[in-house]
């Protein structure tokens, strides 16, 4: 039975507000977009050398990259958000790599997977680009030769953190 009176009305309004707080989250659009982006990063299917094998390993059953929302390797760069440069980039490959990067739609991110992509690795010679950051901007560097799938996943989570952190600033 409802009790009339100003005090009762106030109590009912308070209760409603509390219910509302429980059921509705407020945030900014930027943060929400970043949350959505973070949870479904689709990498480009772009394997170069040894690291590509470990990248396949990361996508396969044991390491299961799908847990983080990115098992879907896209063959077309147009549908991809993330370029994992998995291996050494030769002088002949460099223009192709840049071309693929340019084809990707914004927003896009790059992980330099492995030592060769990060800085040239054990190869220091005429044939290789010493670090892929000379061609495309790199968001996360993953060290290792080749990095273990766990390392790639860690780098991937760092990228997710970065996407969350830089929401709205891009």
């Amino acid at each position: 039975m409802a009790v009339a009176g100003p005090a009762a009305e106030r109590a009912a309004a308070d209760g409603e507000a509390a219910q509302f707080e429980k059921r509705v989250l407020t945030t900014t659009v930027d943060r929400m977009v970043a949350w959505a982006r973070r949870g479904s990063i689709w990498p480009a299917q772009f394997g170069l050398a040894c690291c590509a094998i470990e990248m396949m390993g990361a996508a396969a059953a044991r390491f299961d990259m799908a847990r983080f929302g990115s098992e879907l390797f896209r063959a077309s760069p147009r549908q991809a958000d993330l370029l994992i440069v998995s291996g050494r980039v030769s002088q002949k490959m460099a223009p192709v790599l840049r071309h693929i990067y340019d084809q990707m739609l914004e927003p896009k991110w790059v992980i330099a997977m492995g030592d060769c992509a990060s800085c040239g690795g054990v190869f220091n010679n005429y044939a290789l680009v010493q670090g892929v950051d000379k061609i495309v901007p790199v968001d996360v560097y993953v060290a290792g030769c080749p990095p273990r799938p766990e390392a790639l996943l860690y780098g991937f989570m760092k990228l997710q953190e970065k996407i969350t952190r830089t929401a709205g600033r891009r």
């Binding site: 050398a49 291996g87 050494r88 030769s90 192709v96 190869f123 010679n125 005429y126 044939a127 290789l128």
Partner: peptide, 11 residues
């Protein structure tokens, strides 16, 4: 071919 030429032999 040659997109992965790494210069192993020279190295």
């Amino acid at each position: 071919i040659g997109y992965l030429h790494t210069g192993f032999e020279k190295e």
